[in-house]
Design a protein around this nucleic acid. Structure first.
Lengths: 231, 231
DNA sequence: TAACTTAGTGACAAATGTCAACTAACTTAG
DNA sequence: CTAAGTTAGTTGACATTTGTCACTAAGTTA
């Protein structure tokens, strides 16, 4: 077995992020324009080489990239998958560890200015963004969308795209837009009650020109899984 | 951005496998004894450095390791997760891409001899093997068990642990042993029918000293997901 | 041929999803 | 001050799905 020392480490692994939000109009992903070869000028998922000197672990590396591109420090973050092959980068073997990040509407609104120069939100259309992306990023994005859409079915994941405080109707709308179909109000309410994702915020009601609605927040920062006896 | 060339590549990423089977007695995982530092003499998940000269991609690397240790070429293989940090290996930053492999009872029986010298099946007890493992492998194994147990609920995964041809009752037993609880025969049958995982093998029946049972095989080599309208 | 064992079915109860109507609590127009 | 409009939240009836459990079927063995 080969030994290795950190100093001589040649970068080969990147952390890449599929960062989603509901801004500006519906589900969008953050893309950056590449400035150097290969794929100079193309859009890509934000990412960067792992810094073995500053990143304690992979998640820290992902957080660092996220902070650099968006200014957000405490997103919802989840590892998606790792791809590695000799084909994905013309320069040779490389590994990409992909994370999914969800930014709350709050974050997107407040940190508009912190967005990196070359970064831009692109609305999702179908299984991608209708652009060809650098490396294998189009396929990574597709996988990320698949993960998000499938987790909508059984977890509190969509809650992380809303502001910290939201009403049930707002939450239902997010579920509906990610699933692409309408849900029954009363069934949704029952399910959320039993799933135990949500915590009513004491005394707070959202008022408009109609009956005020109870305000909720997520109980946990993780994406809780609706447990279910299947087989 | 740094450029890199393959020749100067210093190994930093390993592919590690949690290989499961039902042999010799219930769910077991294949462990190997380490021969070199660090953790010399300790048990570990089988794995190896990625060979950028022979492995086309990560899955190929996983298959190579699997072949070396067990002789099996076409297992069920699924990527679990990637860990990377400066703490998991005393020599410094390292990345481990973990795959789950399931060996069919056929494979285990036929390839007994192909098992690598230092490899051994260890029965699962609770969340591990009751041994301290090298690196962070105990935690990786725990994650792998979590993934397997949760996929039992909604996929055909357990089918990959049986021989290619099996009866419904045999399959139900595997589900039961992974779930740790008894299932209703009739409900199980209905669920399997609608899930459409299984294909009856024409005309074949398994006979013992009782009514013969229909023989089935999995429709696909992938672990099909029982789709389900949740929310 | 009766007893035994495991495979496979069918009938009913319980839980869940769907739909639509209803009541509640606010704002706004007049 | 009141009626109309809007969205929140509840309720109940009905269809569909799912779980439970006893029953029938098809073989072997004594």
């Amino acid at each position: 077995m080969t030994t290795h020392d950190n100093d001589a480490f040649k970068p080969i692994a990147t952390v890449d992020l599929a960062i989603f939000s509901l801004a500006p109009a519906g589900l969008s992903v953050l893309l950056v324009r590449r400035t150097s070869v290969p794929f100079a000028g193309d859009w890509a998922l934000p990412g960067g080489w792992i810094h073995i000197d500053e990143d304690a672990d992979l998640e820290a590396a992902a957080r660092r990239v996220l902070k650099e591109k968006t200014g957000v420090e405490t997103p919802y973050l989840e590892q998606l998958q790792t791809t590695g092959s000799r084909d994905r980068d013309p320069r040779g073997w490389s590994i990409s560890i992909v994370y999914i990040a969800l930014l709350s509407a709050d974050d997107v609104a407040e940190r508009q200015d912190a967005l990196a120069e070359e970064a831009e939100w692109r609305p999702i259309e179908g299984e991608g963004v209708g652009l060809s992306l650098a490396f294998d990023h189009a396929s990574l994005l597709k996988e990320a969308l698949g993960r998000i859409r499938s987790k909508v079915e059984y977890s509190s994941l969509p809650g992380h795209l809303l502001p910290v405080r939201f009403t049930l109707s707002e939450l239902q709308s997010v579920y509906e837009s990610l699933l692409g179909r309408k849900l029954d109000k009363s069934a949704f309410r029952k399910r959320m009650a039993e799933a135990d994702f949500l915590e009513p915020v004491e005394g707070e009601m959202r008022r408009a020109s109609n009956r005020p609605a109870q305000v909720f927040r997520l109980k946990d920062t993780r994406s809780l899984v609706l447990f279910d006896r299947r087989i």
